[in-house]
């Protein structure tokens, strides 16, 4: 399978099943488009280039095909089935440390942090039992991830400290290493929390939606007040105190700010270096939910953002955009690429009272409760359903050029919109495809700049 597209002056050709990515000239781009439809002589009558140009390009395309870098077949379906039958271990837990929040974000999937239940804070006992469960179910794996999530984790930060302290004790006893992370809305962040996080947290996610009017419209306090002016100075100091590493300034965009590239640029102008801006996932009847008709503008915004990223990189003031980060020369193996995010098997969410769910997005949906941290998994059939979920169990993924980068999309979104984790949520898919195209274009631009720089140096010598 080959996917071709033009973006920002680059002709890009993805050989989907080998992972090879080529930047080609116009004649080769057109030859590739016809390569499986007609022969060389036929091409000469259909294309407007000189016969010599077409022959030369055709020869290079043939060579790429021979080297396994173009028109490669997908031979992975049986392999992935075999991989999925292997025993897995639990690698990561999402601890819902607080089902309570001091904000009342309009788009919150957790319903003001309460997940369809009552306000609740995780106890130290449940937190410790969760880490015990993780260690006991992680096999020989050394690195374990634990994310403090909510609601708002700083409403229960004393217990966060106790759990981290307990984790450090377990590390010595069991030859494990915990990577702790947490997400915060910033209202209660203070010097003590920053100092503790900088010492103990591998990553901190700071929730901020961009421009003040955008942020305040969607993220008021429980009392209806604005939050932007309270959190911004704290987040800037927090990011600075982490040397602008191992954090994300993370926002949500909705159909009320479809010009979201401006929010990303706003955050970059403020000085944030690690930025994520993610599309809201809301039910169709919500006024802020993204609709099919919004996609052209969203695609345009991603294009604007990609070009801005290239420009700032060239000017020596780069920033990272989470959804444009892509590793073309390393990256994970094909088994990882095609087998999904790990929810329900390698990744589980823990409620404040210790119940286990396939991921944070399923918490509160009783039919997905798979057990608890005190007694372990008691609904293995649900975990098996998630285990078997992969790009080859989703009809739409089989024909999608982005499947080796996206891994099949979000099971929770599929379930919310189709009642089936083996479905796909089409709006998300379309945005993911666009982001992959932009991310690869950025790599093409960076490669061209490196080449130009090298050529310049050679000329000077």
């Amino acid at each position: 399978m080959v996917h071709q597209y033009k973006n920002n002056g680059y002709n890009i050709v993805m050989d989907v099943c080998s992972g090879a990515i080529h930047v080609v000239d116009d004649v080769t781009y057109d030859v590739i488009a016809l390569f499986e439809k007609c022969d060389l002589e036929d091409m000469k009558t259909k294309l407007t280039y000189t016969p010599a140009e077409i022959e030369e390009a055709y020869g290079e395309v043939e060579e790429l095909k021979k080297e396994g870098l173009l028109f490669t077949e997908d031979n992975y379906e049986d392999y992935i089935q075999e991989v999925k039958e292997r025993k897995t271990v639990v690698k990561a837990l999402c601890l819902h440390i607080a089902h309570d929040c001091n904000l009342a974000c309009r788009y919150c999937f957790a319903g003001e942090g309460e997940y369809k239940g009552d306000r609740s804070l995780m106890s130290e006992e449940v937190g410790k039992a969760a880490l015990d469960f993780l260690v006991a179910n992680s096999g020989n794996r050394h690195n374990l991830e634990v994310d403090f999530f909510g609601g708002e984790p700083t409403l229960n930060f004393g217990v966060v400290r106790k759990i981290v302290e307990y984790g450090r004790e377990l590390e010595k006893m069991h030859d494990k290493h915990f990577r702790f992370t947490f997400t915060t809305n910033g209202l209660l962040v203070n010097d003590e929390i920053m100092e503790f996080s900088n010492r103990e947290m591998d990553n901190v996610v700071m929730s901020i939606d961009g421009r003040k009017e955008v942020h305040d419209r969607m993220r008021p306090t429980r009392g209806g007040k604005n939050s932007y002016d309270v959190i911004l100075p704290k987040f800037l100091r927090f990011a600075q105190s982490r040397n602008h590493q191992r954090y994300y300034a993370r926002g949500t965009f909705t159909r009320e700010n479809l010009d979201f590239s401006q929010d990303v640029i706003h955050l970059a102008d403020l000085g944030f270096k690690q930025i994520s801006m993610e599309p809201v996932v809301g039910l169709p009847e919500e006024p802020y939910s993204i609709r099919e008709e919004d996609l052209p503008q969203i695609f345009h915004e991603y294009d604007l953002l990609a070009r801005e990223l290239i420009r700032r990189n060239r000017e020596g003031r780069p920033f990272q955009f989470f959804h444009f980060m892509i590793d073309l020369t390393g990256g994970p193996c094909v088994a990882k690429r095609l087998s999904g995010c790990g929810s329900g098997t390698e990744y589980l969410a823990v409620t404040p009272w210790g119940d286990l769910y396939p991921c944070h997005q399923f918490v509160g949906e009783d039919e997905f409760k798979v057990g608890d941290v005190f007694h372990g998994i008691n609904k293995p059939e649900i975990c098996d359903e998630f285990r078997n979920c992969n790009v080859y169990t989703k009809e739409k993924c089989k024909e999608c050029f982005a499947r080796f980068y996206c891994s099949g999309g979000c099971a929770a979104n599929a379930w919310k919109f189709h009642g089936n984790i083996n479905e796909t949520y089409d709006l998300s898919c379309q945005m993911e495809r666009k982001r992959v195209e932009c991310a690869i274009m950025i790599k093409a631009a960076m490669a061209e700049e490196r080449e130009n720089m090298n050529n310049g140096e050679e000329t000077q010598q």
Partner: peptide, 18 residues
């Protein structure tokens, strides 16, 4: 190649073995 530049058991993750 004159006409082609090749840039190359989720897209950003590095294998722990790597």
């Amino acid at each position: 190649m004159k006409h082609v530049k090749t840039l190359t058991g989720v897209g950003n993750q590095t294998c722990e073995n790597e």
